[in-house]
Every structure is written in C-alpha cells, then in structure tokens.
Simulated assay, not measured.
Amino acid sequence: MSKHTEFKRITTNSLQLMKANGEKFSMLTAYDYSFAKIFDQAGLEVILVGDSAGNVMAGHETTLPITLEQMIYHTQSVVRGAKRALIVADLPFGTYQSNGEVALASSIRMMKEGGAHALKLEGGLEVCNSVKRIVEAGIPVMGHLGLTPQSIYKFGTYNVRAKEEAEAEKLKSDALALQEAGVFAIVLEKIPSKLAKEVTESLQVPTIGIGAGNSCDGQVLVMHDMLGLYNEFNPRFVRKYMNLFEPVTQAIQQYINDIKSGDFPNKEESY
C-alpha cells in the first residue's frame, strides 16, 4: 500500500518530506481556473503553469513565443482555483537567460503579479547564477534538465536526451550544481530511466520525471496529453487516462444537430 501524507497546504518542504519518506507525488499542468479547481480538489500535490500554454492554449509550434505577461495571466487564473496544491509557474524563454538581474526582475513579477508559489526554469550550470540570485531573494526555484523545450532549436529534435556518456555526465553534474545553487526540485525530461534513477539517488532534493522512468520522486504530464484532448500527439511516455477528444467531438456534433433539427432547446429548456 502506498504511503499518503495529509498536508493542509503543499509546500516545497512537503515535497522534501515526501522524498525522505519514500512517498511519490503527482504534478500536472493547468492553465485556467476551472481545471486548477478540479485538479486541486482531486488531491494533486503540484500544479505546473507550464509554458506549454504556448502550444496547447495558444497554438504555437514551440514554447518560445509565450510572453511573461501571458504566463502571469495563466498563473493568476490557476492560483484562484487551487487552495491546497503547490503552484509552480514556468519562467518563459528570454526572461532569465541573459543575467541574474533580469532573471530576478522576471521572477518578482511572476510572484507578485501572478501569485505563484515557486518558479521553474530550464538549464544546468549556465543558469545557476540566475537560480542563486532568485533563491537569495526568497523565491523557490525548480530546475529542469534533459529535454528542455525552450532549447528545441539547439537540439533540433524532441528525441531522448543524454543517451551518450558525455551528455549523461553533464546532466549529472548539472543536477548537483542546481542543487548547490538552491533549487528545491528538478524536472528530468525524456532521459533514460537508468540515468534518472542515478540522478534521483544522488540528490537530496526531489526529482520529477516526464519520460524518465519510475525512479523519480514525482511525475508530471501535460493535462491535454493525460486527458486525451489531442489525437495527433502520442509519445510513449504519455498514459492517456481518458480519451476526451472523441466524446467532446461527438457532444459538439450532437449539439449542432439538435439545433439544426429544432430539438434544442425543447419545452423543458425554455421559459
């Protein structure tokens, strides 16, 4: 039987305690009030306001175009819906890479205006100065290694990362550097499960996997993937817990047909 600790409000410390107790935790993305409320009431520990909003909410090909203002808006919406979950917001591309002062200014806006509880940013050693600067200001930071979608044009592919020894060694040292810089957790995306296990065991802070096997302390998926809201994107690491695309399509088609046939609204649905 899996362990389950009750927390009135999930904090970064809660995740640390769960790792220490060998208790796994769950994270999903959300971008609006309604889904945040459902996820929170269902008992989800962490809600990520992902820059994947650029893809699933705005229709961009990559996460790169989404702005700080747009991420603040999505974060505000999610914060209003969740009363227990820890809400982590992505810092979008271009708002932290140049230097620590820019990163801190972006972070302060996300916390003050967005209402996030913590922030996530991508990269290893190259962003550690920014991480330190943000953490020194009292803002919790989650790291992100492996396949980092903001660097997609550098990678040129969404394939698994760190299969070669040199990249695997860099990822391991990056994880330790991020921990040293003060992150409270690290997302490991699309890396070999053996490597994810090594990294998880080497760290005091929890890891969160997405396509990184079962040894991470937590797991995350994009809500649209997990709920089957798309039918054209099926990576092997996604488990579809529902296939909402088909019943939603059918419901809308039925609605259209009922209007055209004069069946909706009927007498009971009229005043």
Rank of each mutant, 00 (worst) to 15 (best):
S130P: 00
R80A: 07
M71E: 10
R239H: 13
K37H: 14
F7N: 06
L119M: 03
R236C: 00
G59D: 12
I134G: 06
V141I: 15
E180L: 02
F155V: 00
T148V: 13
L91A: 12
Q150V: 11
F39K: 01
L178V: 07
Q150T: 08
E164T: 09
N55Q: 15
N266Y: 07
V46E: 06
L176D: 00
S52Q: 09
L203S: 03
E180C: 00
L203Q: 04
T95S: 15
P206I: 08
F237V: 02
I256H: 11
L64Y: 10
V220C: 14
I139D: 02
S261Q: 13
E246V: 10
L68A: 07
K194C: 00
A185M: 11
V248K: 02
Y271F: 15
T29A: 10
S52V: 04
L188N: 02
S107A: 15
Y153F: 14
V205R: 06
D225H: 08
L178S: 02
K154A: 13
D217V: 01
Y31K: 07
V238I: 14
E189N: 09
V199P: 03
E164A: 10
S34Q: 12
E6C: 01
F237I: 01
T67L: 11
Y153D: 13
Q150N: 09
D51F: 10
A82P: 01
G228I: 08
D258H: 02
R84V: 07
V135H: 06
T207R: 08
L178R: 03
V135T: 12
A58M: 15
N214H: 11
L48I: 03
Y158G: 00
M111H: 02
A89D: 03
K8H: 11
K132M: 10
